[in-house]
């Protein structure tokens, strides 16, 4: 594929955000993925051209980072956390169930069946900083908290059928290519979707509120009751 003039212009915009243009390379590669569906040779050449680098220099960067794909992924890229904590909390069982259900292995795309609106791909991912919601699954880098094997199979089927699926802490999950555009720094207007925090994020606050309430009640009970005898107060 060739890179459109519009995309080239956006690549230049990204480079322009920084004091030195090369700093834009990571978001530029995200934009290439959004436009191309993966990091393609044409995308690498476009980045090299904008930044005055060789394609080899851009490739060296693109191959270092896990999020850059040199092959197609699904419209919905499912990442099951199998780092230690999520693994023991159920991540291993979830991944095994998904592999069996989709008939694919790690970093593979499940073929679109007749009637499917969207394709899905599967990957095991490392810790995604949501351990208090373990086991965690990311779909297009949106959080799905406290997952189960059966629950995730149902979610994946809903995604394939084109039904709306909301992140536990975020908006309706967009496609992988739309997500990559946000990572490149282009607003999609969805920041106000979803809650401020999930239940686990608020666990300490809730305990603190309860403690404060108890402290308040104790203070109330111990306070001198001016002008009333205990009998009058109780009455």
């Amino acid at each position: 594929m060739t890179i459109s003039e519009e995309t080239r212009s956006e690549l230049r915009d990204i480079a322009g955000r920084y004091p030195q243009a090369r700093s834009g390379l990571l978001p530029m590669l995200h934009l290439v993925q959004s436009a191309e569906g993966s990091v393609t040779p044409a995308g690498i050449e476009a980045c090299a051209e904008v930044l005055g680098l060789t394609p080899a220099e851009v490739s060296a960067v693109a191959t270092f980072y896990t999020m850059y794909k040199r092959h197609r992924v699904g419209d919905f890229h499912v990442g099951v956390c199998t780092n230690t904590l999520c693994a023991v909390m159920g991540g291993d069982a979830i991944l095994a169930r998904l592999e069996e259900h989709l008939g694919v292995g790690n970093d593979e795309v499940a073929p679109k069946r007749q009637g499917d609106q969207y394709s899905v791909s599967l990957e095991h991912v490392e810790c995604n900083a949501a351990c208090d919601f373990a086991p965690v699954v990311m779909v297009n880098w949106e959080f799905l908290d406290n997952q189960t094997p059966d629950g995730l199979v149902r979610t994946v089927e809903a995604l394939r059928a084109g039904h709306p699926v909301a992140s536990t802490r975020g908006p309706r999950i967009c496609t992988w290519r739309q997500a990559e555009r946000v990572l490149a720094g282009f607003d999609d207007g969805l920041a106000d979707e979803g809650p401020a925090a999930g239940p686990a994020s608020l666990a300490g606050l809730q305990v603190h509120a309860t403690q404060a309430e108890i402290a308040g009640l104790v203070q109330l009970a111990d306070a001198p009751r001016h002008g009333l005898t205990n009998e009058e107060y109780d009455a």
């Binding site: 995200h30 999020m67 880098w141 959080f143 997500a179 607003d187 920041a191």
Partner: peptide, 14 residues
């Protein structure tokens, strides 16, 4: 910010 947290990035950008 790490790239694998889409909604966090939206909130920061906003």
């Amino acid at each position: 910010v790490r790239g694998e947290v889409l909604h966090v990035i939206r909130r920061l950008q906003a």
